[in-house]
Design a protein around this nucleic acid. Structure first.
Length: 874
RNA sequence: GCCCCUGUGGCGGAAUGGUAGACGCGCCUGACUCAAAAUCAGGUGGCCGCAAGGUCGUGCUGGUUCGAGUCCGGCCAGGGGCACCA
């Protein structure tokens, strides 16, 4: 064998240059072909790309190249999610300006992405930290403000009392600030909010229309929005016990059927009634302060031990004026949800039960399961939240849960106190408005001015963008914009008197909530969008990214698109018609004796299976092979894409990322896997050269010589399978089909060599080779160009139209059906494709295995599933 | 704590409710070679059997079905999200 090795290092940059020079991935908005918009979540420019990016962008690229071959005008852009905290952290730690750091990272990462051979239209590149981008974001903020979609109000933040700064949840570790180590407190600030809750109902309902979204993402969003139908109940307060003149406590409940099981009331630590009561009760004030002494993360609140403080206030049961319930301040009640107050029914809610067990408040079960005797039904440690009949509930006794809910709602609606009904049916959402204020420098400035005389004044459009000042310092914590000597001082746009700029910047989720729209006309200096371009390109046909964005980024983008519609920047509601969430890239970990981690590149692996051991290449020290985890800097189990591309080539990295694991699941990066991919690249190259040698420049249509027919069938079956699987993003199966075809082609070539190929076979072999190259072109585009050129083509493989599978080659004349007896496979039967069921049954009854099983008796039943299986029930 | 997902050979995985293990990795045998690597050909879930074949087998457990990896109930284990990481 004299075949050359395929030299990826030489070939890949060569083909990348050809693609670039011919501009074949540049997309025009006036192209008349049908559009297809494929987008991968744009990266944060953290420094270098990681394997997760390689996986994500390879998947999108396969789809983009495939759709291009299918004749679509494909939009496949790339940009940078360039604002965010890491740039400020770098500034503090390494004394480098966030802007310089960010753009340097972008430069590095762009080069890395380009070395992957992605079919991107780099002409549309954008960075969210560019004033040319955020100018339009500021304009939309003002439009949203005018449309009533922006509000300003108080909300809680994590406050570091030592650094005097606001902390992200990520910066709070075990309740302490990450730099100062001080105990974090909750603090109220006035902040800007986008009124996403104005669209709660719509965002929920429209989930049903997102048919090409994973069901689990829709479910997660549904739960996040959290619509619940319940009852608002106004409990009267015993005036003798209230701190000042409070007369009632409003609660929201979805379990009004259990009102007779009530044992206590609970209010949030920041509920106004709690604040009022604390003014007269120092111990309560201390308890509330204690509750605020941890961060704002919900996880912390809900996993904390359930604690309460009895305020001494009594609430009066709405159905019994003589029944008084104690009002507790409790650490597990959230002011953000409902009214920040509940009634506690321990028998049917686990949290309430834990609470009464701690404070000895007792339990009354009011819903009895169907199969339990009401007289003996008790609840002690486990609350019962199932269905049943009402007990211990006076006029509700004997009713079902829904009947009881209806009866309670009806009675309390009809009863009035003051001039309002005691009960009111209400739909409540868990979804909260989106707080976008950040007390940070490296973000999009919020374009408003605070004037003592005029209040909050929007920056006039002609003055946009409000540009970040560059002369800032990071020697101290806190917001550099706020302490900048001149930037915030500005004349009020309305009255001209000295005023102050807003120094908060926007949440970086705002930046990523509309970049996909901007890509449709990124050159537009006058407006955020060109309506014609945006409406023609959107929605994104296929969006691909990590599952970690299942809720926030995707929900915010859905809201933002609606807000842009309301302010006439786009004409649609849903930005992403198809969504795919890919899994993570994971790798083994290696740990030294001293517990520190070693990187895969530093380690040598020997042996197999149980005998595998790892040693440090440099010193020979043995390291422990640890669990497989998400690639991360802290575990040092990362593999640098540059190293892989440098030694094996981009095609190998791409191929391995697509092989084996289903794209929605995690993929384990292994050295063996990469080498397997590399060997396959070489094998394909040899195969194509052999095929060229065997078939020459043969063209024409193959006849049905039996060898030729077998090859053609294999090729067209692979073609049909790959076409179907790419469309469904089942790339691991595409890989398997390419392997199958190359196996079939290799066998075909070997026997053709032995016997001397007929003209028909030569034509079939050439056709199969061309199909093979086209099938892997989206996945390994450089190798495909090299092979395509070797096959004598002048045009690029990237520009070749997708071949059409010949349907007549996909069906067989006879079928071999498995035969089961009582559900267990015992034999096969081969029948003509269109055999009648009765003929199949007759053939099956002749089989030895079936006769043995029936032992002379007639079968009870024969089930023939056409084209599938036969089951004989003996 | 709440919400969501996943669990199949030695390993990654395949399987519209219809032959469990496609395809790959690894391993074994053979060819080529002085030898090794590379490459090529064949084999490869466990147990019993010379074989034909049988039998067990998709985290555990119960159910629906002619038939369950797939559907339903209960559990166990691992992972993702929880509103200021992106």
């Amino acid at each position: 064998m004299t075949a050359d090795r395929y030299n990826a290092r030489e070939a890949e940059p060569r083909w990348q240059k050809v693609w670039d020079e011919r501009g074949i991935f540049r997309t025009r908005n006036d192209d008349p072909r049908p559009k297809y918009y494929v987008l991968e979540m744009f990266p944060y420019p953290s420094g270098r790309i990681h394997m997760g990016h390689v996986r994500n962008y390879t998947m999108g690229d396969v789809l983009a190249r495939h759709m291009r071959a299918k004749g679509y005008n494909v939009l496949h852009p790339m940009g940078w999610d360039a604002f965010g905290m890491p740039a400020e952290n770098a500034a503090m730690e390494r004394k480098v300006h966030p802007k310089a750091w960010t753009y340097e990272n972008i430069g590095t990462m762009k080069k890395q992405l380009q070395s992957m051979g992605l079919s991107l239209d780099w002409n549309r590149e954008l960075a969210t930290c560019d004033p040319a981008y955020y100018k339009h974001q500021q304009k939309m903020f003002l439009d949203f403000l005018a449309a009533g979609l922006v509000e300003r109000r108080q909300s809680k933040v994590n406050w570091d009392p030592v650094d005097q700064t606001v902390l992200a949840n990520e910066q709070v570790i075990d309740g302490r600030g990450w730099r100062s180590n001080a105990l974090v407190e909750q603090r109220e600030l006035t902040q800007w909010f986008f009124r996403i809750t104005a669209y709660s109902e719509e965002l929920l309902a429209a989930l049903d229309t997102l048919e090409r979204w994973p069901e689990k993402v829709r479910l997660m969003q549904r739960n996040w929005i959290g619509r619940s139908e319940g009852l608002l109940v106004r409990f009267a307060l015993d005036s003798a016990t209230t701190p000042s003149r409070e007369t009632e406590l409003k609660i929201f409940t979805t379990r009004h059927d259990t009102l007779f099981g009530a044992r206590f009331m609970a209010i949030a630590p920041d509920h106004p009634l709690a604040t009022a009561a604390a003014r007269k009760d120092p111990a309560l004030a201390a308890f509330i302060a204690e509750c605020k002494r941890h961060g704002t993360a919900q996880e912390i609140v809900e996993t904390a031990e359930k604690k309460g403080y009895d305020t001494g206030i009594k609430a009066i049961h709405p159905f019994d004026p003589s029944w008084k319930l104690p009002v507790y301040v409790a650490n597990f009640i959230l002011m953000d949800y409902g009214t920040g107050a509940i009634f506690g029914c321990p028998a049917h809610d686990q949290r309430d039960l834990d609470f009464v067990n701690r404070y000895g408040l007792g339990v009354t079960p009011v819903v009895c399961p169907a199969d339990v005797d009401p007289a003996s039904f008790v609840v002690t440690d486990t609350a019962y939240d199932g269905d049943g009949r009402m007990i211990n509930s006076r006029f509700l006794d004997g009713m079902s849960v829904p009947e009881a809910k209806e009866e309670v709602a009806r009675r309390l609606e009809g009863e009035r106190r003051g001039n309002a009904p005691v009960g009111e049916r209400q739909v409540n959402f868990r979804l909260r408005d989106w707080g976008i204020s950040r007390q940070r420098y490296w973000g999009c400035p919020i374009p408003v001015v605070h004037c003592e005389a005029c209040g909050v004044v929007p920056v006039p459009e002609k003055d946009l963008p409000v540009v970040l000042p560059e002369d800032v310092t990071f020697d101290r914590p806190g917001n550099p914009l706020d302490r900048h000597p001149t930037w915030k001082h500005v004349a009020c746009p309305e009255c001209g008197k000295p005023a102050r700029r807003e120094t908060d910047t926007m949440d970086t989720f705002v930046d990523s909530s509309w970049y996909f729209v901007r890509f449709t006309d990124p050159w537009n200096a006058d407006a955020p969008t060109d309506r014609a371009a945006a409406d023609a390109w959107l929605p994104v046909d296929q969006y691909i990214g990590g599952i970690e964005h299942a809720i926030l980024h995707l929900l915010y983008s859905r809201f933002f698109t609606r807000a842009m519609r309301a302010t006439r920047h786009v004409g649609l509601d849903e930005p992403f018609a198809g969504l795919f969430t890919q899994g993570m890239v994971v790798h083994e970990t290696y740990q030294r004796q001293d517990g520190s981690y070693a990187m895969p590149a530093e380690v040598k692996i020997e042996g197999a299976a149980d005998a595998r051991r790892a040693t440090l290449t440099a010193t020979g020290e043995e390291v422990k092979i640890g669990s497989i985890e998400k690639m991360s800097k802290s575990k040092r189990n990362t593999v640098d894409p540059d190293d892989i591309i440098g030694s094996y080539g981009a095609d190998v990295a791409r191929w391995f990322m697509l092989s084996d694991s289903p794209p929605e699941r995690d993929v384990i990066w292994t050295e063996e896997g990469v080498q397997g991919a590399w060997r396959f690249v070489q094998r394909l190259w040899r195969l194509v050269q052999e095929a060229v040698a065997a078939c020459g420049e043969t063209t024409g249509v193959a006849g049905d010589d039996s060898a030729a027919l077998a090859i053609r069938k294999a090729a067209h079956r692979a073609l049909a399978n790959v076409s179907e699987d790419i469309a469904k993003l089942r790339f691991n199966r595409c890989v398997a089909h390419v392997y199958e075809l190359s196996n079939a082609l290799q066998a075909g070539l070997a026997s053709a060599k032995g016997r001397g190929a007929s003209p028909d076979t030569r034509v079939a072999l050439r056709e199969a080779t061309e199909i093979l190259v086209q099938l892997f072109q989206p996945m390994m585009p450089h190798l495909a160009e090299e092979c395509w050129a070797a096959l004598g083509h002048d045009r690029l493989a990237a520009e070749a139209p997708w071949p059409q599978a010949d349907a007549t080659l996909l069906t067989e004349e006879t079928l071999t059906l498995p035969v089961q007896v009582n559900g267990k496979k015992r034999a096969d039967v081969t029948v003509p494709r269109d055999a009648a069921n009765s003929d199949i049954e007759a053939a099956v009854l002749q089989l030895d295995a079936v006769r043995r099983a029936l032992d002379g008796k007639a079968p009870k039943k024969i089930i023939v599933v056409p084209q599938r299986i036969v089951n004989v029930v003996a």
